[in-house]
Simulated assay, not measured.
Amino acid sequence: MLSLESIVPALTALFVGESGLWVLFVTGFLSATLLPGGSEAAFLAAMRLGDNSLMLLIVVATIGNTLGGMTNYWLGRLLPDKTSDEKHGHKAMHWLKQHGYWALLFSWLPVIGDPLCLAAGWLRLNHSLSFFVVLIGKALRYTALAMIFKGIL
């Protein structure tokens, strides 16, 4: 029978050294797709272990999370162009229409963030600009999380 005492060392081993960076990248990527999940626990665990520099952790988590968000963007591009079809609208799409690319700064938010990226692709927003704004939003999120964890914020 599995116990908490036997699981914790196994989970901790995932975050040690280079494998921890891969776990952080993958959890960041998957949590930014339409799949359920969150990367905050993996990010905090990696910071707590202290095996890697804080900047490296922020970069790896940001890249994984941004690529996951852009996967949603490309999935949205695969959908038929329905930019004029209001009956299939979603709150994220209306937010993007109202606030433009700046709404993608909030692609890290739970519930609305994933659909924001999907809607950006569906609305055929520019890929490069969308990538840049999503990247900034995700980087700010992990930087703020690190600052809170370190007691700076």
Rank of each mutant, 00 (worst) to 15 (best):
L34W: 07
M1P: 04
F29M: 00
I112R: 06
S3C: 07
S130H: 04
V134N: 06
L21P: 08
G69W: 06
D51M: 12
A146E: 01
L24F: 11
G17F: 14
L135M: 10
G100C: 03
A103F: 12
L104K: 11
M93P: 01
A144T: 11
L11P: 01
H99N: 12
V16T: 13
L57Y: 09
M47H: 02
G64K: 09
G100W: 01
P9R: 02
M55A: 15
A120R: 07
S128W: 15
E18L: 14
V111F: 15
L24W: 01
A46F: 08
T33K: 07
I58H: 05
N52Q: 13
H88C: 04
L24Q: 10
K82G: 08
L30R: 04
W122M: 14
A32F: 11
L140K: 05
L78C: 06
L56D: 01
L79G: 15
S84K: 10
G89V: 03
W108F: 14
F132V: 11
I148F: 15
G20Q: 03
L21W: 03
G50D: 06
F29D: 00
L78H: 01
W95Q: 10
A103P: 12
F131M: 12
F29E: 00
G121E: 00
S3R: 15
F106E: 00
E86Y: 11
A119V: 06
W102E: 11
T62S: 15
A146Q: 08
G121V: 01
G28Y: 07
I152F: 13
M1L: 07
L54E: 06
L21Q: 06
N72S: 06
A32S: 15
P9S: 00
A45R: 05
F149Q: 01
I7C: 10
H99L: 10
S19W: 14
T33S: 11
F131H: 13
L35I: 14
M93C: 07
F29Y: 06
L96M: 07
G76K: 09
R124Y: 00
L140N: 06
L104I: 11
K87Q: 03
D51R: 08
L104W: 12
L56W: 01
F149P: 04
E5G: 05
D81Q: 07
F132Q: 08
L109P: 05
A13S: 12
G151T: 00
L104S: 13
G151E: 01
I7D: 09
W108V: 11
R141F: 10
M1F: 07
D81N: 15
G50C: 05
W22N: 09
Y73W: 14
Y101R: 07
L78I: 02
W122I: 11
Y73Q: 12
T83A: 09
M1Q: 12
K150C: 12
L56S: 05
V133Y: 04
I152C: 07
T12R: 09
V134C: 02
F15P: 01
S84L: 12
Y142N: 02
S39M: 09
P36D: 07
G113W: 03
L145G: 00
E5P: 05
M147I: 08
E18R: 10
G20T: 00
G76C: 12
L30T: 10
T143Q: 05
S53V: 00
G38V: 04
V134Y: 00
